[in-house]
Design a binder for these strands. Structure first.
Length: 790
DNA sequence: GAGCACTGC
């Protein structure tokens, strides 16, 4: 056996029993998975298979690298609990698992599952979802290495724009949660999967929340499907009771889903609080950093602030003060390097967070220190090794949705306790660290929420509701959510989808809605894309949709503002910002051979490349559903067609000019639906007075404009704006613009004049409003009524 | 005359 080249370097204890390449017919010749009974596999069997000289999945001898990695895997906390995990996996359909950072759960548990579940023997897959693409990709790569297979073969990943799997070969697939949700829309049973693992469930992304609801239901229908919900924090009790086993037929009391717990592997972090609340957290953060720099041992610092402007500002101030300190006394204070970090920063600059801290200014002088000033991106998405000190002012920008006024906005808000703990943990990744919280301990205990509100409670749900409808969920209000959204939010979503004709008046998905759901877009965009061939401008609408699906393309470096504005003016189309976006993309496309074109025009090449990617994906979907891609030759007619198609998707986002001061009134925000009587009770809002955003490229102030975005910053603004004709509103959205139900005012009078003129022209004929059908008074309505009474 | 927390399809 010592001759075995694959085992010779291992101590005898790890060679397993009788594994050899000899051809004699001893038990050692058995296949690595000999005797494995699906879902009844024991830890000892798995360990033997792992030690076998042959890879059970490729039948190839294990590589030296495999052995080396296996050594490291054995040291992971989760590895020590393999036996217990497999026992639980055999016994239960649903398991909730808690593993702190460093436990190895994301890489190991899916592997344990495959050894027990043996998906490859039944043509199935094990899926493990992640909230972020990079995580899905990098974990898949790591696990492929650990299993000694090529990425994309037995182990793969699936994310938007990239399917790194091989049909028939891949049996362990990491994927984004949104991707699995999309798959569910076309296969409600998720029949390809034998086990589904939802990782990072505590992050409570919209997709994970919806998946939890679906899987809970699916588990009742598919007894062969196993589900593991993995979470990092101790909020597992909630998941346990949500997934409780309840056999009501047998009259049993519900018993919580079993919990499997694995310790983490991090270093202790000492937490400090301020004695008094800090009135200015940015100033306090800067002061704290300098205090650490002067008084604490070497080690890098991570500060959490809320946004780009705040971060750049703080970096400048820290740098100034630190340079002063260094100049005043270079023998007692080291040099300091300050690095900003936020998502809109170009990747090259983001990489700077991994640079080493500066060297001492002179030999024998104190070492330098790196300070990273970051948004929440460093809380979950990016990990920086070597951080020893964390400064946590206790705030972050969070999305909030107000269904009453249908507005999503960003608000600087206090973080949750869970978030504060996550931030503190960032100081203990490489060695014991310290966390300075810029609030009092009392506030931490009594003021901070336990958990950040899940996304489903903070978002416009139009998209999610369309997805659920496509998933066959009939009663959206009664759907078994882990946290149910406000009924108003659901109503707003239903209302929008009904106006877009994605749902009929009974709340049933229409054929149009079914196709809309196939597009990875907000419903308004999907609608306008699908109807755009009627205006013979689908090629252009496709481009505009792609451009509006990506981050801002305009660059404006602080020292070159005038030049940037000038470049923008050159590309601006005065009829509207949507046409400008189209123009930008077309120019980019024509100048693709010129690598400097984007840069010379102060445009983000990265964003434009993304737009191209999105456009290609949308084009594939259009082709799949026979949405023709066509263009109008004549530029004038084409631009009108584009604006008309825009109106078909965004007629609910229209503003009417009031007076001459450039103020606009959003149309009909204070209105209840005409057909859906259940929304009458929601008609409590007032119209919003808004202004055109300064970035708007319109050369005049047209009477009627359509906007893509409402932003609430210093003032309420509408952004990405295009002029529309009121006739189009009446023609393409007759139900929404039914004047009989319109509130009196300037807007109504203006529309009335247009309507009268149209009626005159068509001689009173052609009643275009469709017959009004009352939505049956269903549970949804009762739900809302109940709310209103409270 | 301003801004874009972070993801995802």
């Amino acid at each position: 056996m010592a001759d075995n080249p694959y085992l010779a370097h291992l101590p005898p204890s790890q060679r397993g029993v009788g594994h050899s390449l000899s051809t004699s017919s001893s038990s050692s010749d058995r296949e690595p998975l000999f005797g494995f009974l699906p879902r009844k596999v024991k830890g000892e069997q798995v360990r033997q298979a792992m030690n076998h000289q042959l890879n059970p999945f490729t039948k190839q001898p294990h590589s030296a690298q495999y052995r080396k990695i296996l050594e490291a895997r054995r040291a992971l906390p989760v590895y020590a609990q393999m036996d217990e995990f497999l026992k639980r996996f055999s016994k239960n359909q649903i398991i909730v698992m808690v593993g702190e950072t460093g436990s190895g759960k994301t890489t190991q548990i899916p592997q344990f599952v495959t050894y027990s579940d043996l998906p490859h023997t039944k043509g199935k897959l094990v899926a493990c979802t992640q909230p972020r693409r990079v995580a899905a990709m990098s974990v898949a790569q790591r696990v492929a290495d650990e299993m000694d297979v090529q990425l994309g073969k037995q182990v793969g990943y699936s994310i938007r724009f990239e399917d790194m799997t091989e049909s028939g070969t891949t049996f362990l697939k990491y994927m984004t949660d949104g991707m699995l949700l999309r798959e569910a829309m076309n296969d409600k049973e998720l029949s390809r999967y034998s086990t589904i693992i939802l990782d990072e469930a505590h992050e409570r992304t919209l997709a994970t929340d919806i998946l939890m609801g679906l899987l809970k239901n699916l588990a009742k229908r598919r007894k062969d499907l196993k589900i593991i919900v993995m979470s990092a924090t101790l909020d597992a009790v909630k998941f346990q009771s949500y997934f409780s086993l309840h056999d009501s037929a047998a009259g049993e009391e519900p018993s919580p889903a079993p919990l499997f717990k694995v310790p983490g592997r991090t270093h202790p972090v000492e937490v400090f609080y301020t004695q008094e609340p800090e009135p200015d957290y940015v100033e306090a953060a800067i002061r704290t950093v300098l205090m650490i720099h002067r008084a604490e041992d070497p080690g890098d610092i991570l500060i959490f602030l809320t946004g780009e402007e705040e971060i750049e500002d703080a970096c400048r101030k820290i740098k100034l003060e630190a340079d002063d300190l260094l100049n005043a006394d270079p023998s007692s204070v080291g040099p300091l390097m300050c690095v900003p970090l936020y998502s809109s920063l170009p990747p090259q600059q983001q990489q700077r967070i991994f640079d080493a801290a500066p060297k001492p200014s002179q030999e024998g002088y104190p070492p330098g220190r790196k300070v990273v000033v970051s948004t929440n991106i460093a809380e979950t998405s990016l990990t920086i090794d070597g951080i020893v000190y964390v400064v946590d002012p206790g705030f972050s920008k969070q999305k909030v949705y107000n269904p009453r006024i249908r507005v999503e906005s960003l608000l600087v808000s206090p973080i949750s306790k869970a978030s504060a703990q996550q931030r503190a943990g960032r100081a203990g990744r490489t060695r014991p660290g310290k966390c300075f919280r810029l609030y009092t301990e009392k506030d931490f205990i009594s003021e901070l929420e336990e958990q950040t509100h899940p996304e489903i409670l903070r978002s416009n749900l139009a998209n999610a509701v369309l997805e659920l409808a496509k998933l066959g969920i009939k009663d959206l209000v009664r759907f078994d959510y882990l946290d149910a959204p406000a009924p108003e939010t659901l109503m707003r979503a239903l209302e929008l989808l009904n106006y877009l004709a994605a749902l009929d008046d009974d709340g049933e998905l229409t054929a149009l809605g079914g196709v809309m759901a196939e597009f990875p877009l907000d419903p308004q965009f999907a609608k306008m894309l699908i109807v755009s061939p009627e205006f013979r401008v689908s090629n252009e609408i496709l481009t505009i949709t792609a451009m509006l699906s990506i981050p801002n393309v305009w660059l404006r470096p602080p020292n070159q503002r005038a030049a940037a504005d000038q470049a923008k003016a050159m590309l601006t189309v005065p009829e509207g910002d949507h046409l400008t976006m189209l123009n930008v993309f077309n120019n980019y496309y024509q100048n693709k051979h010129d690598r400097n074109w984007a840069w010379n025009n102060f445009l983000s090449a990265r964003a434009l490349a993304q737009a191209e990617n999105v456009r290609a994906q949308l084009l594939r979907t259009m082709e799949k559903y026979d949405v023709d891609v066509i263009s109008l030759e004549d530029e004038r007619k084409r631009n009108i067609g584009i604006r008309q198609a825009l109106t078909c998707g965004f007629f609910m986002q229209v503003a009417h000019k009031e007076g001459e001061k450039g103020s606009y009134l959003t149309v009909k925000d204070n209105q209840a639906s005409t057909t859906l009587t259940i929304f009458k009770s929601l008609a409590l809002t007032s119209s919003k007075v808004v202004a055109l955003h300064p970035s708007c490229g319109l050369d005049s102030q047209p009477e009627w404009v359509l906007f893509n975005e409402f932003v609430l910053t210093k003032r309420p603004y509408i952004r990405t704006v295009t002029e529309v004709k009121p006739e189009w509103l009446l023609e393409y959205a007759p139900v929404y613009f039914d004047l009989a139900s319109f509130p009196n005012g300037e807007t109504k009078s203006a529309l009335q004049r247009v309507a009268n003129k149209r009626r005159g022209l068509s001689n009173g004929g052609g009643e275009e409003t469709r017959p009004k059908k009352k939505l049956k008074k269903d549970k949804a309505k009762e739900e809302v009524d109940k709310r209103e009474k409270l």
